[in-house]
Design a protein around this nucleic acid. Sequence first.
DNA 1: GAAACATCTTGAACTATTTTGGTAGAACAT
DNA 2: ATGTTCTACCAAAATAGTTCAAGATGTTTC
Lengths: 259, 259
Amino acid sequence: MLPAKRRARILEVLGAEQMVSLKDLSEALGISISTVRRDVDYLDEAGYLSRTHGGAISTARASTTFEPEAAIASAIESAAKAAIGAVAAQLIQPGQSVLFDSGTTTAAAARAAAKLSIPFTAMTNDVMIASCLSQNALVQTSVTGGTMRSGTTTLLGADAVNSVARLRADIAFVGTHAITPEVLSDTSLELADLKRRFMAAADRVILLVDSSKFFNRAFCAFGETSAVDLVLTDSRISADATAALKDRGIDLRMVDIAP
Amino acid sequence: MLPAKRRARILEVLGAEQMVSLKDLSEALGISISTVRRDVDYLDEAGYLSRTHGGAISTARASTTFEPEAAIASAIESAAKAAIGAVAAQLIQPGQSVLFDSGTTTAAAARAAAKLSIPFTAMTNDVMIASCLSQNALVQTSVTGGTMRSGTTTLLGADAVNSVARLRADIAFVGTHAITPEVLSDTSLELADLKRRFMAAADRVILLVDSSKFFNRAFCAFGETSAVDLVLTDSRISADATAALKDRGIDLRMVDIAP
DNA sequence: GAAACATCTTGAACTATTTTGGTAGAACAT
DNA sequence: ATGTTCTACCAAAATAGTTCAAGATGTTTC
């Protein structure tokens, strides 16, 4: 297994468990304790987790504005994201207009949507999603203007907001950095602002969120769960989380993850 | 198997897998590990993927770049474009604002510019160029809005035009499909319109054009050679062409092609 | 066209570097 | 006190970098 893959898996475990011992990690990943120790130290150094005696605890999401580098973000929960994306794409009807928020989960949806053979119109503020969708000649792809923060593929700022403000769409696929039973939140004001616009511009808001995002709070709230028409998540979501959302009458669909 | 085909297949694998070891690639493609290593290093250099010890992981672009092999080939295999791009990047001064037209030659300039360690502001209508530039934290990258035609990474249309119309930049790097001693031309009205705006918005217009574009005419003229402040081309340009341009008082610089 | 020549690419052999898993003693928690 | 975890080190394995000869490709010359 590749070092990078190993580290991503460690973060996945930590996303689900909050706390793990090095021993457990060593057994779960089938690698020696020495290597686990080195990986965990590395991730600690890089700020992805915190070390404790004998193990590691997740810290990334506790820090409300922390964003992992793109390479790692896309590797974390990649199976869950792909599964969620595949189901999301199936919800698109021929001829509809669809908004794709930026993010790795919505990117998975775009990748699946690009393989559909139905025509639809798409708009996104993520250049990676855009170039993905534009592979399919049936998809009319538009991109918001805006400014990219370095290391990301996300367009933000006044131009992006204005582009979205003029629109009316059938569906918005929105991602989120964190979700509680009531609130969706993300890491920056600008991101939050734009997500709010996406949600306001669409008849049907579909939230794509893998199970590791429950229940956390990030820096900046951008909407309420009640404003979402459908939540798509993976089957690793906890019973607590499903109950809390269903109590609020939120339509929740779980997607089985391929091994 | 052709080198270009090999590299395209590596990107294809990487689009599906997120990470692969060199060993796996070697087996999957039936080529030696040495060759895989060379290909992967090459693609890393060109920004299509990132290397890790023992393998490669997909960057934003790799997972979306199911570009036809021909597109990859023309984008990264051309020594002339790379050489022109490298020289173009050197013309950027710290703090300047720079417009990057869409196209493979301007993309080469963007790749070189992304490796500079000077801060500047960039605006482009090509999402590939944008994701290239945004890898450098010193570069403030903006993207025009617009619509993508399928199979391309180019943004066109009213939104793109409007984005550019508001700007004033120090430099515009402009590509062209064809050039005669008097006229620059390209393949579509929309493209031509946007290129015209780029040229009007910049104090200094620098035309990046490899020698194969002399002297042809494409469907739609978008400007006169006299409106260009500097023409950068490669040394394979014919003597006729240089003479014709110099007769018109056009500043022409030839770039030696690296071996 | 074909032969001769130069150039580039490939795969393999070899060396250097990095990574890995193990071990021994020190530090730690209960 | 006792078992566990940490640090530091080592040898083995894997990967990266280098070099080179054989083959493929491209160019020139006749």
